[in-house]
Design a protein around this nucleic acid. Structure first.
Lengths: 69, 69
DNA sequence: ACCTCAAATTCCCGGTCGGGAATATATGAT
DNA sequence: ATCATATATTCCCGACCGGGAATTTGAGGT
């Protein structure tokens, strides 16, 4: 999973929900510019805000370790 | 999933693999201080580096959208 | 108590984030 | 081609990241 893939996923999910970037940004508590750069795959976006956006979209994040599930 | 939870998961996984912070940091291409702060749950860590650390641990990241899987 | 090694904190400081607003560009329908 | 709207880029600039090295704190063992 790369920053670019995460950005694309966020964009696709946002569009599927019929949201504008400005609407999702406001709902997530981030700036519009941040969301634009996040969707573009910026690797230096801060993780807390990225998680805020994903949560606003209703996305669940799973991290699978190599050993256990 | 919060930054704190991600930090704890990284720490647990690292320990399970018998790695020191300095070793994982080197293997991930990040600084020691960054890893320390990441494990402590710093919400401003940059996502690209966080993904680098997870990849070095062999963790896979999944993002589940509310509609599709 | 003492020693060892892991983990956490502190230092300096160049580099970058990211907010809001304005502007420019792209996308799409008619 | 034209017009409307979504998305992208630029501006300034205070705030914060994060590298390496050194130091301090903490946990375990004997």
């Amino acid at each position: 999973m790369t920053p670019t893939e995460i950005g694309a996923l966020i964009r696709d999910t946002r569009k599927r929900q019929g949201l504008l970037q400005a609407e999702l940004a406001a709902a997530s508590g981030v700036g519009l510019r941040f969301l634009i750069e996040l969707e573009a795959g910026k690797p230096t976006a801060r993780i807390g805000k990225v998680l805020d956006v994903l949560a606003a979209l209703g996305c669940k994040v799973q991290i699978l370790t190599p050993e256990a599930g």
